[in-house]
Design a protein around this nucleic acid. Structure first.
Length: 289
DNA sequence: GTTACGACCTGCGAGC
DNA sequence: TGCTCGCAGGTCGTAA
């Protein structure tokens, strides 16, 4: 499942693979993949053809390719989306939904998505003269912890103002972006906090430590190319990441905690799974998921 | 305004 | 062998 490290690896691949190239044709083979482009697939295609991709940008899990028209091709990979840059004659993927062919005849950009939770759209780019380069459609997303402009103090204050559990807060993309279920569990393991710990009871030092741990987890995951549990997450070249080997909690039910040896527990959380160490991360008496 | 929760979607594995 | 069911989970809309 693509979270920030996986999306960053994809962004780097897009920067290498499509920046500076001009779109010759676009083919949408499944409308659902462009459902967020409310003007429809034809308009989506028309706004891309003849346009040159300037760069590849990211905020949290959102990607976008600024175009020379002032528009931006934005994308979210959802749970199973892939943006591949592959030779034009390579076999068509089973869940290929959008193909972007470039005028130079080189590798093409493909959007592949098994579960179609992800999608693409062409949106207005940032308003001229604005310092923030995020398209308005993604402006509600907070900066991620690796963003140089991330405001640590503002995050700590906002976190402690919330009335929810710390894991739910980490997954709130309007508070801090880029963290999904896997890296939330890994961050909490490092911070030795249970996800149900009430945010309003966190001290400032603990909140700062939590943020530092999130940065460490995300940074290390990027170094290793992200986390891959199956073929659903790959880079633009189709290569899987290696961070799965470094996971301490996520997906390790009943395996010994690398820190204390206690068997990792699995709990139900928001219709999904949450993994933690029962000894290092004791559940609070008045916990709140 | 904030928080919580269900729906969306499809492939895979377990169980019968 | 084939069928059913549960699970995976990021985002958005809606309800409380």
């Amino acid at each position: 499942m693509p979270e920030l490290p996986e999306v960053e690896v994809v962004r780097q691949g897009l920067q290498r693979g499509v920046a500076g190239r001009t779109v010759r044709s676009v083919r949408v083979t499944r409308d659902r993949a462009v459902r967020r482009h409310t003007a429809g697939a034809d308009d989506f295609t028309a706004r891309l053809i003849g346009r040159t991709v300037l760069s590849a940008e990211r905020r949290g899990k959102y990607l976008w390719l600024p175009l020379d028209s002032g528009d931006a091709l934005t994308g979210h990979l959802g749970m199973s989306g892939q943006l591949l840059v592959v030779p034009a004659d390579s076999p068509l993927q089973k869940h290929l939904h959008v193909r972007v062919v470039f005028g130079d005849g080189g590798r093409e950009l493909r959007f592949v998505d098994q579960r179609t939770f992800g999608g693409l759209q062409v949106v207005d780019g940032p308003a001229p003269g604005t310092t923030d380069r995020v398209p308005p459609v993604s402006a509600h997303i907070a900066r991620d912890p690796l963003d140089p402009l991330f405001d640590d103090d503002a995050f700590v204050d906002a976190l402690r103002r919330k009335r929810t559990g710390v894991k739910r807060a980490l997954l709130d993309q309007t508070l801090v972006s880029g963290i999904g279920n896997i890296y939330a569990d890994e961050t909490l393991w490092r911070a030795q906090l249970h996800g149900a710990r009430p945010t309003e009871l966190l001290t400032r030092p603990v909140a700062r430590r939590l943020l530092a741990d999130a940065r460490d987890v995300l940074g290390e995951a990027i170094q290793q190319g992200g986390t891959s549990f199956d073929a659903l997450y790959v880079s633009t070249e189709g290569v899987s990441g290696l961070f799965e080997r470094s996971l301490n909690a996520y997906g390790r039910e009943d395996q010994p905690c690398p820190r204390c040896g206690a068997p990792v527990r699995r709990e139900s959380f928001m219709n999904r799974s949450s993994f933690s160490c029962p000894r290092c991360q004791p559940r609070p008496r008045q916990g709140r998921w």
